[in-house]
Design a protein around this nucleic acid. Structure first.
Lengths: 137, 137
DNA sequence: TAAATGTACTTGCATATCGCAAGTACATGA
DNA sequence: TCATGTACTTGCGATATGCAAGTACATTTA
């Protein structure tokens, strides 16, 4: 992703941070599927490759959306957790999901989130936010 | 932008259509700044290059977000208008703008839209939609 | 009416980014 | 000790992008 210099437009600012094809997939996994570990992101259906995953995690940390905590003497404990700045993307992610739900005929409606999104979005958001009480409190 | 085959995830579906760094800039110009012509998109602050603009307009037409109408015997009349599928991105665009407003310290608050977004989002959306009554009616 | 200008593109080319496969360094488990 | 797992990095060919230039057609200006 190219870096546009400081922009005056909030949309371009956002795109410069997570407007590539992969960052939002990672953020979706963090926010909605409660993933924390490198191995979990790798396992997503979309099959992100390791070099890209590594680079995107790094850039999301640099942009202040994720915080990386490394376990002492065990790399398997490395975790990526969202900051408030990432949690504030919930409305964006939900809006995108609404749009995708309307127009993607292949959406898998058996994913529990999908039903709840249409029937009880606010409740869904509050429930998901409970995964991050350490951040929000 | 790579094409992932048909996805089951509404977010990935959306990203495959407008998840590149430029499509949303064009859609912003169509939806919010009421632009219709190639020359108007070219004039944006972000300085999209002609080959990219041409390719993105084409892919947005292919994805059913824009409709291209060519003037008879005058290319200067060529217009790109949003479909309902594009108008349904208003909530997405607004959500992104809210996030960008919160975190981009360089946002130009003198752009009239910015004030209105925070004080009267629904009114703003309705007013902007009046630009597209031919689509929505 | 000839020349200049504008518009919507396409083309070429250097560079950046990506997908994929493989390798690395360290830790745990059998 | 040997296999396995985890979080990466590296190499390389393929794709996408940025930039400059060119093209074809229409209108405007002199």
């Amino acid at each position: 992703m190219k870096k546009r210099p400081s922009t005056v437009c909030p949309i371009v600012y956002a795109l410069d941070i997570w407007g590539d094809p992969w960052s939002l997939v990672i953020l979706r996994d963090v926010l909605i599927h409660n993933k924390r570990h490198y191995r979990e992101f790798l396992a997503s259906r979309e099959r992100i490759s390791t070099n890209i995953l590594s680079a995107r995690l790094q850039s999301l940390v640099d942009a202040g959306l994720l915080v990386k905590t490394e376990g002492d003497s065990n790399r398997a404990q490395t975790m990526y957790r969202p900051t408030q700045k990432a949690l504030d993307l919930f409305p964006v992610v939900f809006a995108i999901m609404h749009w995708g739900l309307k127009y993607n005929p292949n959406t898998d409606m058996t994913i529990p989130i999908m039903q709840e999104l249409t029937t009880n979005e606010k409740g869904l958001e509050l429930r998901l936010l409970q995964n991050f009480e350490d951040v929000t409190s």
